[in-house]
Simulated scan of single mutants.
Amino acid sequence: MKYLLLLCLAMFSLSACQNTANKTDQSTEEPTDSGDSQDDPDLVAITDVIHGFYQWYDDSMEKIQHLDYVKTGKHLSLDNKKVDAYFDQFLKSGFISKEYVDGEKAYLKALEVDWKKTEYEDGPIDGLDYDRFFCAQDWDIKAWTESFVGVEGLGTDQATATMSSKEGGGPNEQKIELKKENGKWLISKIICGE
């Protein structure tokens, strides 16, 4: 009886070990869906919006940069009509949200307050000495129109995208916040590390 009990216990243990091994093999072989599948419709739409925006911006840059909304003089100031005209172009592009424009206008207003504290000397304008969309002075457009995009927040109406590239020789990441308005993803913030 003692041997029979030991034999049953041994078989039970062996069976339990095999089931655990099978479950482990199945979980590593079966793909897991973390919501970041490259086929996710929101991920595809977000990637298209980001890549599309940067291609549109690169193609439109000459025309847009002719809108000089900073008035020079003893102190720099903003020409608010030109600021509005400048950002209206971005709203019309279909890639940028009003929230983004409002954030950029607030940024410019804060700069204007600082500009009034010091006299302007010819040269780069503090706070505008880099491109606010590319977060840089120089860039490779392919990095912005072809880079891999990963997204946090799929399945909601707000998401944070991270573009990953090797622009400039090193691994780079650019974070971009988006929101879904009327079923369409729009850029709401480009995080430049300020």
Rank of each mutant, 00 (worst) to 15 (best):
E119V: 06
L178V: 09
L76S: 14
M1K: 01
G153A: 04
L78Y: 14
A85I: 03
C8R: 05
K166V: 04
I46Q: 09
P31M: 14
S77A: 12
L178R: 13
A16F: 09
D58V: 01
L5Y: 15
K98A: 09
K117I: 11
L108E: 08
Y54E: 07
L108K: 01
Y57N: 03
D140E: 11
S164H: 02
D58A: 02
F87V: 03
F90N: 00
V101G: 00
G170K: 01
K23T: 12
K184W: 12
D42N: 11
S27I: 15
E104Q: 12
K117E: 14
K116R: 11
I190D: 13
A85S: 13
K98D: 04
S27C: 15
D59L: 05
D157S: 07
C8P: 02
S15P: 04
F95M: 01
E173M: 06
P171V: 11
K189R: 08
D33Y: 15
F53Y: 06
S188M: 11
W185V: 01
D33G: 12
G193W: 05
K166L: 02
E173K: 11
W115R: 10
D138Q: 10
R132S: 15
G73I: 06
S188T: 09
W185M: 00
T24N: 13
K116C: 08
S15L: 10
